[in-house]
Design a protein around this nucleic acid. Sequence first.
DNA 1: GTCTATACGCTGATAGAC
DNA 2: GTCTATCAGCGTATAGAC
Lengths: 191, 191
Amino acid sequence: MKTKIDTKKQIMDIAENLLLDRGYNGFSYKDIAQALSIKNASIHYYFPQKTDLGVAIIDRAKKRFEKWAAGIADKDIGYPEKINEFCLIFKKYVEQEQQVCLGGALETDFKTLPAEMQKETRIFISTILQWLEKILSAGKDKNEFKFSGSAREQALFIMSGLQGAIQIVRVTAPLSFDAVTARIRSNICNV
Amino acid sequence: MKTKIDTKKQIMDIAENLLLDRGYNGFSYKDIAQALSIKNASIHYYFPQKTDLGVAIIDRAKKRFEKWAAGIADKDIGYPEKINEFCLIFKKYVEQEQQVCLGGALETDFKTLPAEMQKETRIFISTILQWLEKILSAGKDKNEFKFSGSAREQALFIMSGLQGAIQIVRVTAPLSFDAVTARIRSNICNV
DNA sequence: GTCTATACGCTGATAGAC
DNA sequence: GTCTATCAGCGTATAGAC
């Protein structure tokens, strides 16, 4: 039972929010400090370099996804429904804060990221794509999906559509995000 | 016949490249100045504020697209082929420099952009979506397309897929971009 | 752990000489 | 048009007191 306020976690929460909102080059330690009513230097105590903070955020997001995936694996639902749950993650981003997903934010900033963050980004994206691929492949074997081409390609397609939609909706809202997910489903699930 | 070197155009060309590569907050006047071997202050002569430069880039890209669209309209090709030509624009980004498209770059930075740039971004994205919608709608009327839902939703779906794919490929390359366009086609063109 | 103080390069931007 | 000089503010980051 933790009663102590976890400053480190708070820093990460706020920084992750800022990252999704403004991109890696669009926020500073000052922004975080002000939000927490602490001083700039205090953040350096937890994360000596901004790179450390960035890496920690990506790594945590990866673990969060893996935990989510484990929860989904336990559920007794069909593969199409699992893909649907995946789409719901993105829907949350759109509806709550018009935020971009972490992958998309990191990808557009990719060439400006320090090497360690680039590495973590690749791992993060791979983790998600591999999960999608696994679900698609298994679902196809059980005739719950029907699509041409490899599961890998299909995974890329799904991820692309969701990620792009989340971003576009930001500037053209309100536009039905559900319309995108419906098309993704129809593309894999015309069985 | 212009023989004079157009510094203003050169600045815009380099800035646009930097914008696609690094995002709006990821490049500075210094970067442009160094690339052109001129001084920081000289750029301010052409574009007093960075906002002016940003707006000019978006506006030019919009006009470039409109010109492209006019060229496509003149071509005696079917609607599916027109969508295919549209996909090829994105393919160029991926294959040449692993660059992100302008819309995607601006969208992820959206909340950090000055108001004038936000406005131009909306206009730019709308222009493209409206073109797509028009082509999809006309093609559907001629039975060259077959899709459910509105042309508007379908336009969003296509744009999302392409934009997302271009970004993801950046970190997971080499991944077949064509696989994404093939799926987009199959989704609208199963006639 | 959190603070104050401080370093220093980079940022967008301006004034004025040539 | 392009330059030099200069600016104030912000960026990440460190040292050391409390």
